[in-house]
Computed example of a mutant assay.
Amino acid sequence: MTGTPVFRLGYVPGTTPAKWVRIWREREPDVPLELIAVPAGEAADAVREDRADAVLLRLPGDREGLHAIPLYTETTVVVVPKDHLITAADEVSGADLAGEVLLHPLDDPLGWPAPPGILARERPATTGDAIELIAAGVGLLVVPQSLARLHHRRDLTYRTLTDAPQSQVALSWPEGTTSALVEQFIGIVRGRTVNSTRGQQEAKAKGTEPVRARKPPRGRATSGKGAGPKPGGRGKPRRRR
């Protein structure tokens, strides 16, 4: 006897699956969705090793043996102390970072091949560790805006970096193993509705049909026997007395 199916969705720090999870629970009330937080460096292995059915991760990155559907592009920012000169502008360019020490954590999601400024000799293990160093006055950090928000501190802020590489958040799963549950989640992240052609096919496969509103036949009254004659039409002539 098989147990209740569960859809396991991994996600890396800073990604926001809440909207898609809500839609899943509305459409699949009998199939629990389990959220699994995974470090950025382990996201690809999470699905390769069957610890998750699919994962929200960042591109570019390790995609060997994986499908990936890009979902949205993230804004790139530079994280700085609140009293840094860069905060005088709303957005900055790479040239504004010349001469600045840049931290390059091991879980860096951008992979900027030739960043401006001076790369720090030591690489922090994580983005969180790099944030702590910035607060201590050691360097700046270029990251997706979602990570800057995730690691928000009162003594730090960030500014948009206009000419830096950008990361994409993508849904990824192993090649050759697209299960029905993964297919259903793909439809959700792509905005597929229940009444779409694909949605109807999936409903039929489950033995259910999407409910549609019935339209009244043309030319017939919709308000019952008491409906009067059409405007401008001739009513039944009265008998003279």
Rank of each mutant, 00 (worst) to 15 (best):
W173D: 04
R153N: 07
T162Q: 12
Y72K: 14
L102F: 12
L150F: 12
A98I: 08
H104P: 01
T157G: 14
R154M: 11
A130R: 04
L56W: 07
E100M: 15
P115K: 00
I69C: 15
H67R: 07
A98M: 07
V92E: 06
S172V: 07
V142F: 01
S146K: 02
L85D: 14
S167N: 07
E91R: 10
S93H: 12
L119Y: 14
T127V: 13
A135Y: 00
L141V: 03
L141H: 03
T127W: 01
P60L: 03
H84Q: 02
G117Q: 00
L71W: 13
G111M: 08
A170I: 11
P81A: 07
V169M: 10
L156H: 10
V80W: 06
W173F: 15
G61F: 11
L71N: 04
E64K: 13
D163S: 04
D90I: 09
P174H: 00
A130S: 12
G111P: 04
P60D: 03
A114G: 12
A148S: 03
G137E: 04
P116S: 05
E100F: 15
E74T: 11
L161H: 00
G137R: 06
W173P: 00
L102N: 03
R149D: 14
A98L: 14
V79E: 02
Y72P: 03
D96F: 15
S172C: 11
D155M: 11
P81I: 05
K82Y: 13
A114K: 13
D155E: 15
T126P: 04
A120V: 00
V55P: 05
D107A: 03
L57V: 05
S146V: 11
V143D: 03
E74S: 15
G61W: 09
